[in-house]
Design a protein around this nucleic acid. Structure first.
Lengths: 166, 166
DNA sequence: TATTGTTATACTCTATAACTATA
DNA sequence: TATAGTTATAGAGTATAACAATA
């Protein structure tokens, strides 16, 4: 367990991290904003998946996922195929053009990181990856314990807006 | 120097980090969004400062800083005092009400972190702080080397939109 | 009746550009 | 002429809520 001063410092670093994210965002092609890049990256890494799975990996609401996916679909980078197992569902699939776009993005971002982190050791980079991975896991694991819940948490683990129960 | 696969993984962690930021954002009071919280935090830590200094620490454009500061000023959390040394300039000063608000924010965020990171050792938290601090420094230091500049960079180190030179 | 995905709306954060008042 | 700060506008990301089609 860390002390309060450490947590405060950590929060400050989280806040300052925005500048790094913005710099990475600026090197993206203008028709491929961050949300689109995230979709392509996840498809490249995990392969075809349903919208709901994509929303879960992106850790955003389904409505947001739907918008991002529509954007990349308009550019021909993905296709939304019917799911034979469930007609409500759609399978998101990376096209060759999407793979090419992903390669372009990967090239740009890795080059920028290589420039900025050129004095980092291999081990330091690994440590940062490990700690950020763990950080995310620590927050993910607790979706059942929404912060400061005095009232018993009727928790929604899904990635979408709950439908109104009429 | 790390290899390309490491950089790719790092980028993925950066992207996933958004979920952590959003969860922290959700516990903020509704009239104190992230931008306001960042202003209060920096003033609490570094004391009174000019708008331009605040913009530099926030690592955003002066126009953005101006908006955030206007928001917290409307709520009485800061005052904008005249700068005796330069009538164009304003000194941003945290009020007692602002300090109280800051204490509230700090309490909420440190509590959430204490919950989420309760199985982290003191040392791991320190390491994450250290690596994120270094990461930011690595990006800050390179403001003179805007990514992929084939053309000699006419670099703007300031935090504001350049005035048109007519 | 519940779930998958879409769309409409609203809010926050950000940058660019133009404007003012000083310097 | 240049700088400190403000405001107007536009773009991206997100969540909430309501909706259609299907389970």
């Amino acid at each position: 367990m860390a002390d309060k001063a450490q947590y405060e410092e950590l929060i400050r670093q989280f806040s300052a991290f925005g500048a790094v994210k913005r710099e990475l965002g600026r090197i993206m092609p203008s028709d491929c904003p961050g949300g689109s890049a995230a979709v392509l990256t996840l498809l490249g890494r995990y392969g075809d998946m349903r919208m709901s799975k994509l929303a879960e990996l992106l850790a955003v609401d389904m409505s947001v996922t739907s918008r991002h996916v529509a954007h990349v679909a308009e550019r021909g980078w993905i296709e939304r195929l019917p799911d034979p197992a469930d007609k409500r569902s759609r399978i998101v699939h990376l096209t060759p053009a999407g793979q090419a776009q992903l390669d372009e993005l990967t090239g740009r971002t890795t080059q920028l990181l290589a420039e900025r982190l050129d004095d980092w050791s291999d081990d330091e980079v690994s440590q940062l990856i490990r700690l950020m991975t763990r950080l995310r896991a620590s927050f993910d694991d607790c979706r059942f314990t929404p912060a400061r819940s005095a009232a018993p948490p009727v928790v929604d683990q899904s990635t979408r807006t709950p439908a109104i129960t009429t």
